[in-house]
């Protein structure tokens, strides 16, 4: 019998689904609409082979901030457990995973079998998350996907001091008004965002090798700044499929 398990990671801005068929991974992602339950089931159905039905799956586990709205899931787990499991699969040598999503930063210390040893989550504030970049980049007029390219041209990172998205916004407005290069502003925003996310990382620190995942780590300049902040003593890799570590973990947890 083939083993088929699914994981759904229902985040605040997107929904990720992973199907594990005898260890083979299939992923899909969609923007999070008003109805995460429908979107998730549509995503999952798209991953199934012809003739296979949802009810044939051995398990469906939901995770992510909106996990409780995925009604067809048989179980929910927190992002923390899902990330630990997912990391143990894609990067068994990692002792820590840092996930930077649209609204949340999660730092999880992982034991040898993918179990959670300790964790830290960002508090109410979103200043170290993807939404910080989204909001501030809009003022500069650059789509978030091009931020790293632009930052590559920067001569300097303009200092942005605010610890809060709203205040950072007004700082950016005044930088733009003063005619500061857009590339320098964006590079500065990356620095500010990373500085904010490091407050969550420092709560518990990191153990061993670090895996970075989440939508934000597709931004190469952000990854570079994280590396600088962590120092050369920490070895760090970016997940190959950074969006799907949580959904993969959720799928794998169903296989036990």
């Amino acid at each position: 019998m083939t083993m088929m398990t699914a994981g759904v990671d229902a985040g605040t801005t997107s929904i990720k689904a992973t199907l594990l068929v005898d260890g083979e991974m299939r992923h899909a992602v969609a923007d999070s609409p008003l109805d995460p339950n429908r979107t998730a089931s549509r995503l999952l159905m798209g991953l199934l082979d012809d003739g296979v039905k949802m009810k044939d799956l051995d398990s469906i586990i939901a995770t992510g901030q909106s996990r409780r709205s995925i009604k067809f899931a048989k179980k929910t787990v927190t992002e923390v457990s899902a990330l630990a499991k997912g990391t143990a699969i894609v990067r068994p040598s990692a002792g820590t995973v840092i996930d930077i999503g649209a609204q949340g930063v999660r730092v999880v210390h992982i034991g040898p079998g993918g179990e959670v040893k300790d964790f830290a989550l960002n508090t109410k504030c979103s200043a170290g998350t993807g939404s910080f970049l989204e909001v501030t980049a809009e003022i500069v007029g650059v789509p978030t996907s091009q931020l790293d390219e632009l930052a590559a041209d920067a001569r300097d990172r303009s200092p942005i001091n605010a610890m809060c998205t709203v205040f950072a916004e007004s700082e950016v407005v005044s930088l733009v008004a003063r005619g500061v290069e857009r590339s320098d502003i964006v590079a500065g925003l990356h620095q500010a965002m990373v500085r904010n996310l490091m407050t969550t990382v420092r709560q518990k620190g990191t153990v061993g090798e670090v895996l970075l995942c989440g939508g934000v780590v597709m931004n190469t300049d952000v990854v570079k700044v994280i590396g600088e902040e962590m120092g050369s003593g920490v070895s760090m890799t970016v997940a190959e499929e950074p969006l799907f570590i949580g959904s993969l973990g959720a799928a794998a947890l169903g296989g036990r």
């Binding site: 787990v77 927190t78 923390v80 457990s81 179990e115 959670v116 964790f119 989550l121 109410k124």
Partner: peptide, 24 residues
């Protein structure tokens, strides 16, 4: 009541972690 869902995630994650330890 604003932070209930955030608290829930922390508490659930903590309890999952404890369950993982007892399965060891």
């Amino acid at each position: 009541q604003e932070d209930v869902e955030q608290l829930r995630t922390r508490i659930e994650a903590f309890i999952e972690m404890l369950e993982g330890r007892s399965n060891r």
